[in-house]
Write a protein that binds this DNA or RNA. Structure first.
Lengths: 340, 340
DNA sequence: CGAATGAAGTGTTACGTATAACCTGACCAG
DNA sequence: CTGGTCAGGTTATACGTAACACTTCATTCG
């Protein structure tokens, strides 16, 4: 066997094949040949490139241009549907602008344990980071890259921040439940210290405090999962006894699903005995019965808007904070309270 | 303001700062300096790099080396939990080997509509593709890169294939339901033409055909979602009337959740009147009540094993097909049939 | 008619890195 | 004293691309 390694053809190979110079190939394939190369030759170059199966070496291009049209997206975990949808929105926008996306799943949802830039394998032009602690931000900012934060505390060092209107979401939940007549509440909170959950706790407490007779009976923290919600809600209901809350406000749909399970496991009914609300409006919210009343966050829009904010920042554009509206999906897991 | 652009320091800057040549910097930071550079100078270089905040330009490195330690992972959609978990497994292994991962979400779950390599923004060393149609494979193989297929038809052009034992999974389902006494079945099939679903259909039909008295009453196709399963199961139960199937075998947990909803909406009970099985063992399987009897596929392991198969292939290693075992998670959605 | 303009290209260089090839003393054996 | 070896470096080059500066030739215009 002759080991003629079929190494990838370069623009020089294309040039030779088409009988032109490498510079001409670069002009034609870069689509900025108009007025500089005759149409006949341009077509010849394209034909040669097609015939040889030429693909530009992106490493060489990045090196030459000093930019790569690639951004890093940092999310805590893609197995969380919320972040997966956010990521999908970001990728959709990026693809439309011929920008590549590299993913860095930050462990623990807190901050990068390893160097996020090391995982990039390409020169990065910008960073889109979600639900990050402010300390982790420093490491990202270190690169001097444009940085857009998603679902995070607005912070001066970021080029821009895009958040869902978490406060409004929690106000909708509180108003909904108060309107139904609920007065005794418990908060099943996520066991994560991030901006979004701090806002939820603060707003819920504030809204309830402003209504005479309304009370936040108890707050329980749990890891974001069905089992976590189940355990936390069980603790709440068992500890409070006869004066149990009539509404369980959960930081997340997974927690809410677990809470519903806990209610039933204790011989009570959702929503007749206990109302349960979620947050995020994940697929699971309409999979369970009764379906969850929950706050619908525009996850895809969040990612898409973040990417749209990042792209001009790559060119030194303006910064700012965007807040996206949220809605309440009223479903079967909430009802007026019964009994005392 | 003096616009002294703080462009990123290069290895040459580090060299100047440390009083050595650029070549020495490359040796030291590449950790192959032993016996070629004195320990004192090596430490000086590292100190200079630290002080300047030096980060190697990965584009330049890729160009020089001709490889990038980056692989492309192709999945239909990350909002599908199965693929998200598979991806997570692949990323975990890659991170341990200092290999970067670029993601290409192929639309429609069929094949790349756009050029997957264009989205890469970096020279790629290999491809890990999942649940692809064979036609789409050609476009990927075109790059001449090592290619490992996941959850796909074994095919000669791939370096290796890693599959879950779908056939065994479906045999477990059939045996479980037959053992409970079921004889009339319906198949709620995914509306996707891919290897994994073709195997499920074929094996289910085969297993039932081998048992006297057992019958596959009907097959309905539906898009993989709760709504799809709901509609398909409704069609099945309404069309078959009194001789309705006592077991609904679903290609996916989402379909199974929808099927459960359909059963209840028609005034029947799960599992007393109709047993329902799923596939994949997603989070939702234990979120609903009754919890789903379903086939647990090792999604993370699939991605991890695929990546482990791909990494040696980058260096021209061997090929082969790996089949990973699956298990049946027996839960509340199945029971012996009642009535006629 | 000579100069200016413009079309259609080409030659050359730089991007930042890794490495092959070379260089320079110091040390030691013969 | 000479030649060889080895540690500890340095110099120079190539990777593939994009783009600046330049050339050539034909055409137009004063």
């Amino acid at each position: 066997m002759s080991d003629a390694i079929p190494s990838r053809p370069t623009s020089r190979d294309v040039a030779q094949h088409a009988g032109v110079s490498q510079a001409t190939v670069s002009l034609v394939l870069g689509d900025r040949w108009r007025g500089r190369v005759s149409p006949a030759r341009a077509e010849a170059v394209r034909a040669a490139a097609r015939e040889l199966g030429y693909r530009p070496n992106l490493a060489a291009r990045s090196l030459r241009l000093g930019r790569s049209r690639t951004v890093l997206v940092v999310v805590p975990s893609l197995t969380n549907e919320f972040f997966a949808r956010m990521h999908a929105g970001a990728v959709r926008v990026a693809a439309g602008e011929d920008v590549g996306v590299v993913l860095y799943p930050s462990p623990e949802g807190v901050g990068p344990a390893r160097d996020p830039f090391a995982s990039a394998s390409a020169t990065l032009d910008g960073v889109l980071a979600s639900s990050m602690a402010v300390e982790a931000l420093a490491a990202l900012r270190e690169g001097g890259l444009p940085l857009v934060m998603l679902d995070s505390e607005p912070h001066g060092t970021a080029s821009a921040t895009v958040n869902p209107d978490i406060a409004a979401g929690m106000r909708l939940v509180a108003a909904h439940l108060l309107g139904l007549g609920h007065r005794r509440f418990a908060h099943i909170a996520a066991d994560v210290d991030s901006w979004t959950f701090r806002v939820r706790a603060r707003v819920l407490a504030g809204e309830l405090a402003s209504v005479p007779g309304a009370r936040l009976v108890r707050t329980e923290r749990a890891p974001i999962a069905v089992a976590g919600g189940l355990a936390a809600a069980t603790r709440v209901l068992e500890a409070t006894g006869p004066h149990r809350p009539t509404a369980l406000v959960c930081d997340d749909d997974m927690l809410a699903v677990g809470a519903c399970k806990a209610v039933r496991r204790l011989g009570l009914r959702v929503p007749e005995d206990v109302s349960v609300t979620g947050f995020d409006d994940l697929t699971v919210a309409t999979a369970v019965e009764p379906e969850l009343t929950t706050v619908a966050l525009p996850a895809e829009e969040l990612g898409a808007t973040g990417m749209r904010a990042l792209l001009p920042a790559l060119a030194g554009g303006p910064a700012g904070t965007t807040v996206l509206p949220v809605t309440l999906s009223r479903r079967g897991s909430t009802a007026p309270p019964t009994g005392p």
